[in-house]
Amino acid sequence: MTEPVVQFNNVCFAYDQEEILHNITLTIRSGNMVAIVGPNGGGKSTLLRLMLGLITPIRGTVTLFSTPPEFARHRVAYVPQYLLFDPAFPITALDVVLLGRIGQHRIGAFRRADRAAAREALNQVSMAHLARRSFAGLSGGERQRIIIAQALIADPDLLLLDEPTANVDSRIEHQIYDLLNVLNQRMTIIVVSHNLSVVTRHASHVACVNRTASLLPLAELAETQRAAVHSGDMAVLQHELSCQIINPTESLRIPHHSGPVETNR
């Protein structure tokens, strides 16, 4: 068994009174490429934010590389859902990428090595020709790839992406997922997506999140499920996966904890 990268142990999370995630226990291991799927509002983005330690669970523990998430952030890069950027902000694509290294220099300008790394990252996402262009003037798909490049120059061991292809056409979408497969050879990848047919073609594991969640290796899917995957039939697949992974109504009835409550707050 390879090293566990992300571990959720009986995690519950709620904004105010409303519980978003209930009793989540799962382990994502080094080298996995996990697709997180599920309905809107099911808690997919919340799951990522818990992994980053941007929010803390009300019950249970989350660990990243076997430590609390706050202490392992330098090993993680995060590509947020379509960014709420100020479209008038004066910044070039290259400068956006360079910000990925902001944690490495406490003071002063970026070094020559940083610029070289930024150009290399832009090459990887096929955006080198746009380096000097204003970030605001780029299309949604171009901006998305710039932000992926920004994640790459931090040289992470774990890459988290929240709907990275929400604003791009299917050609770019395939390019991005092909790139993720290449990157997966050197880092663990967790990607939230609404497009089942594409992610399941590229991922090693799938997690269907809808208040509850568990992880399933795609290789173990039954023939009917795989057919559903490849036809991209959302309804059939969701049914198949949720039956196999969890019975939502049943799991929601499980009480929070029987034993003493552990939290990492």
């Binding site: 980053l52 941007l54 952030r73 330098h74 993680v76 995060y78 947020p80 960014l83 950027f85 100020d86 902000f89 910044i91 400068d95 956006v96 360079l98 910000l99 990925g100 902001i102 944690g103 220099h105 003071i107 002063g108 300008a109 970026f110 920004q150 931090a154």
Partner: peptide
């Protein structure tokens, strides 16, 4: 401004990234 230009840029443009990177 010369010393912290990049930090100011990060917290103004992408505060969440700054936070995740320990700024």
């Amino acid at each position: 401004t010369i010393l912290f230009y990049n930090q100011f840029l990060a917290v103004s443009f992408q505060p969440e990234l700054a936070r995740l990177r320990g700024v």
